[in-house]
Amino acid sequence: MTSLLNSRIIRFLVGIWLPLLLIWWWWTASADSVDPFFPPLSAIWEQFKFNWIWQLFPVHVVPSLRNLFVGYSIGIIAGVVFGALLGSSRRVSRYFEPLIDFFRSIPPVATVPVFILLFGLDANMRIAAVAVAATFPTLLSTMQGFRGTDSTLLDTGNVFRLTKFQMMWKLRIPSASPLIWSGFQVSLQIAFVVTIASEILGSGFGIGAFTVMSSDSFMILDAWTGVLLMGLIGFALNVIFDIIEKRSLHWYFGQKKLTR
């Protein structure tokens, strides 16, 4: 059994039976459902196709994803820049760390009302909220990554007379990159949550707003399609992220696999 599980195809098949079973179970168990809150999956699926392929897609999905990506990009860039600065200087970080510690302890979604006060209800508010929420995880792990740069590595770079630029791009950043990437991942998850929250609280367009409005007005099928779509997007974001991370850090994962 165990040796069979070393084959990738077998592992895939073993991994897929439970999800398939669950979907099948949901489909048949809900087929004759009269519970208003749990309509038949077949009906949800029909509605899902009707809503999202592609009628409402440009109205709700596109703005959501746009806010998410713009905010996320700003957030992680700011996170890396400030994280690198604070990670390179103990003297500076000593003053900022307590504040950062405090701000990251605030649940990211709870900052949305603050951004509504600052920016009103428009798209800028959503982007700002997403950007700030996405900054902290990346900032913290970048800082940690920069602090952990191996001193032998830095010595080697110095003796071989690498320029400041080379020290940064060929040495410090790659050395911190495994941690930076894990910061990116947490940032992405938080950015996704804040995107949805900002739509729900900021009323307007977006998948989050659509789903909650459907739910509030008892359009149960629509609410279910929104939940399904958000779930799928959340999962897809993670999968895509994993693929990009594995590509960018192939040296790191390769090394880890060998030392295990």
């Binding site: 080697t156 071989f160 007379r161 790659p174």
Partner: peptide, 20 residues
């Protein structure tokens, strides 16, 4: 760091860059 000087350190795992 003087020009024309090269080093070989004990800890090769930490002096070679694993990402290159």
């Amino acid at each position: 760091a003087p020009e024309g000087l090269a080093v070989v350190l004990q800890d090769y795992t930490r002096s070679l860059m694993p990402w290159l």
